[in-house]
Design a protein around this nucleic acid. Sequence first.
DNA 1: TTATTTTATCGTTAATTAACGATTAAAGAA
DNA 2: TTCTTTAATCGTTAATTAACGATAAAATAA
Lengths: 107, 107
Amino acid sequence: MKTASLSLDDRSVRRSAEIAKALGHPARIAILKLLADRTTCFCGDITEILPLAQSTVSQHLKALKSAGLITGEVEGVRTCYCLNPDGIQELQSVLSELSTELIKTCC
Amino acid sequence: MKTASLSLDDRSVRRSAEIAKALGHPARIAILKLLADRTTCFCGDITEILPLAQSTVSQHLKALKSAGLITGEVEGVRTCYCLNPDGIQELQSVLSELSTELIKTCC
DNA sequence: TTATTTTATCGTTAATTAACGATTAAAGAA
DNA sequence: TTCTTTAATCGTTAATTAACGATAAAATAA
C-alpha cells in the first residue's frame, strides 16, 4: 500500500480529478450531451440553445477541450466541436475504475 | 432552445455536475481512496497522511459529505468518516450512464 | 475591395474555492 | 473540577471560476 502523500501526486488521481473538474459544471455536461446528440457542433448553435452568452459558451468549450474531452476542428469561419473518443474513453475508464474501487470496499 | 435550457436545469445534469465537482480535486479523490482502504476514517488520520492542514482536510471532508459521497458519524471526540454506499452507488450509476451515453454516440 | 459572419480572446466584476493558522466546542481523561 | 484531544468553524488571503459585453481575428460573401 503506497503512502498517501504519494496519492496526491499520483498521476491517475490527478487525471481523475482533472476530468471530474471538467464535468463539474451543468453547462459543460449539457454541452457534452449536445455534442453527443450531434445535432449541433458549432459554438453559435450551442449558444442559441443554452441560456448563456457566446463568450461563456466558448469558455466552457475551451475547458472541455483542454481537459481532452472534446476536439475543435476549424471549418472556415467556424469551429466544429466534437466529442473526443480518446478523452471520453478515458473518462469512462478512469471514473468507472474509481467508482468500482470505491463501491467494492464500501461499508 | 426549450430542450436545452431545460437541460441546464435538468435534475440529473445538475446532480452529475455536483458529484463531478466533488471529485474535482486531487485531495478529495485521495480521501475517498483512503476511506475505501478503511485504514483510516478520522480527520486526524487523514491529516497525518496528506500534506494538508487539518482545517483543509476538514473542509474537503465537508465537501464530500455535502455531496453525499461520505457519511460522518460522531464517535466521542472524533468523527468517523465512511464512504456512503448510496452516494457511491449514485456516483457509479450517474457517471457510467453519462459516459455510456457519450461513448456510444462518439464520432 | 468592403462587409458579414463566426469564434476566440480581452477586460471586468462577482462569486467561489483552497489554503492556512487560530479558535471554539465537545468528549473523555486525569 | 481541570486538562487534553479532536474536529469544526472562523477569519483571512490568494487564486480560480463564471459570467458578461466588447473587441479582434479570420474566413467568406458581396
